[in-house]
């Protein structure tokens, strides 16, 4: 193999190491981008919806207490608005089922909310229920807690998935940086080996040939340079030897 090809192969190897590491880093970084988008699209939307549902449930609970106190107008107005908020948030969660098993959690929210709503849909003011705290504690409050718990379960599921995706992102970030670090270290070590070999098989023979020619010019000592490789250097040595032989003739 000629010197040109040898030097080219050295640079090619370094380029391959850096290129592959670079390509891999880009791949992992783009995956991190996808993971971020997934967190926002899949999990954060559902978590936000769950928070809105919990807020709506708490407003409904307050409204029921107002109805127990006989405040029909204020209580019903709050219930209507909170119910609309809950329904809107629930629809967001229902349309954003992205985790295996999430559908069951969404259905559980629906069932728990329907049970809860069935209690406060019936009239309260000017009935036996008005001011009836034992009815509130025995039926309404426990039903409210059940609905809230079902929403919290949904939120927890999305929280866990978000944590898992974030952990995955951390390892992906690790995978994106490590090839670069290893490629840099490898390229550095390779450069040292490359320079050692260039020095040993290219530079040193050239110096030997130069010294040999100089010795021939100065004191007529015949040129004797041992070259192990079969490349331009060995051709150069044999050419110089032929030249010297020709000039002597």
């Amino acid at each position: 193999m000629g010197i040109r090809a040898k030097i080219f192969s050295g640079f090619l190897i370094m380029a391959i190491m850096l290129l592959v590491a670079g390509a891999w880093s880009i791949y992992e970084l783009s995956n991190i981008g996808i993971s971020v988008q997934r967190i926002l699209d899949d999990n954060y939307k559902s978590i936000n919806a769950a928070k809105l549902m919990v807020e709506a449930l708490e407003r409904e609970d307050s409204a029921i207490l107002l109805l127990l106190l006989g405040k029909q107008k204020e209580g019903r107005a709050i219930l209507q608005s909170a119910d609309a908020s809950f329904r809107k948030a629930y629809e967001t969660a229902r349309n954003n089922v992205t985790i295996p098993g999430e559908q069951e959690y969404v259905d559980a929210v629906s069932r728990a909310y329907d049970n809860y709503k069935a209690l406060w849909s019936k009239p309260i003011v000017e009935t036996a229920r008005e001011g009836n705290l034992s009815w509130y504690f025995s039926e309404v409050h426990s039903s409210f807690l059940m609905a809230k718990l079902s929403v919290q379960n949904l939120m927890s599921l999305n929280d866990q998935m978000m944590y898992r995706t974030a952990s995955d992102m951390e390892s992906r970030a690790h995978r994106a940086t490590m090839p670069g670090i290893i490629a840099i270290i490898s390229a550095f070590v390779f450069a040292i080996i490359f320079s050692f070999l260039i020095n040993l098989f290219v530079v040193t023979p050239i110096i030997k040939v130069t010294d040999g020619i100089q010795r021939y010019i100065d004191s007529g000592i015949p040129l004797k340079v041992k070259v192990d490789t079969e490349d331009e250097i060995s051709k150069l040595v044999s050419s110089v030897e032929s030249l010297i032989a020709k000039s002597e003739r």
Partner: peptide, 22 residues
């Protein structure tokens, strides 16, 4: 990818001396 990349590094480092060293 970790295995392929390491394989590549080992192969390149291992094969390169054969180009230069008789």
């Amino acid at each position: 990818f970790p295995l392929i990349y390491t394989c590549l590094i080992a192969a390149l480092f291992g094969a390169f001396p054969f180009i230069f060293i008789p």
